[in-house]
């Protein structure tokens, strides 16, 4: 795989140095059944404001790569930089917000206090906490639910609250690990549309892990196709779709062409 796609090189000129730069990243887990090659020779560069989706079957290393960026796993070989720092330094600098597949809200805290949790941990003063919580809850359209407890909200609303929680502090990177994987199709469509708008409004750099081809194509400026055993990148697709994307764009020929290429890439990965 070519290390740096042309489009990204041009983007740097405008947007400065890359947010995430990986070269030759390898991760081998030692297990009881012998070593497992979770990531093999991953080269990837993500520019500021990119929306990059990682798609591939289970065991392809897409979540593992995201966890490496978050310094929740450490690569066994290769170089990985986040905001020009090591992932560990970036984690300590609170450079990213992480959204898991489960919302993981604390049942004993109201929605507002759940969103305020990272702010409490980071030592924001109370007045600023309240202000930020109000702003991000409005951003995910949960303004009226600040004082509800998590069990009073639907699954989709809980996941929106967990996105608000990741947005509450000033991290300019958002790492999302199958955030809509447990939701039904209709809720997922709506949240995709909202996430797309949110990305446009905030200009965050988003890394997004998913199983779903339409979701990846709809949301991304770039799609990284991965395949398992060993986990590696098999294709990187720069999306020609415009930044403005109504849901109907999914019926356009361009959309279908990209989805086709992703599907072919996934199939090729399976045959090997």
């Amino acid at each position: 795989m070519a290390a740096i796609p042309e489009a990204s090189v041009q983007a740097w000129a405008a947007a400065g140095p890359p947010v995430i730069h990986a070269s030759g990243v390898n991760l081998v887990f030692e297990t009881a059944d012998g070593p497992v090659h979770a990531l093999k020779d991953v080269d990837l560069t993500v520019g500021r404001g990119d929306f990059v989706s990682f798609i591939g079957p289970s065991g392809c290393g897409k979540t593992t790569f995201l966890r490496c960026v978050a310094a929740l796993e450490t690569p066994t070989a290769g170089r990985l930089n986040v905001n020009g720092m090591t992932p560990e330094a970036a984690r300590q600098a609170r450079a990213y917000g992480y959204v898991f597949q489960a919302a993981g809200l604390y049942p004993w805290r109201t929605i507002a206090r759940n969103v305020a949790l990272p702010l409490e941990i980071m030592g924001y003063p109370a007045a600023e906490r309240a202000e930020r919580v109000r702003r991000v809850l409005d951003l995910v359209e949960l303004g009226g639910f600040a004082n509800k407890f998590p069990w009073q909200l639907s699954g989709g609303m809980q996941q929106r609250a967990s996105i608000a929680r990741a947005l509450a502090f000033d991290a300019d990177i958002l790492l999302m690990d199958e955030p809509f994987g447990a939701l039904d199709e209709i809720v997922r469509d709506r949240l995709n549309e909202e996430l797309h708008k949110l990305w446009q409004r905030t200009g965050k750099t988003i890394l997004f892990v998913t199983h779903a081809i339409p979701e990846a194509v709809y949301l991304s400026t770039r799609i990284v196709v991965m395949s398992p055993r060993p986990g590696r990148i098999t294709d990187v697709i720069d999306s020609p779709l415009p930044r403005e994307r109504p849901l109907e764009i999914r019926d356009s020929p361009e959309f279908i062409a990209i989805a086709h290429r992703v599907r072919e890439g996934l199939r090729a990965g399976y045959v090997e």
Binding site: L72, R91, Q92, G97, Y98, A102, G104, I121, F169
Partner: peptide, 12 residues
């Protein structure tokens, strides 16, 4: 583990 990971991402 996820709850503990989440706290780690905030450097708690």
């Amino acid at each position: 583990a996820m709850q503990l990971d989440l706290l780690r991402t905030w450097n708690a």
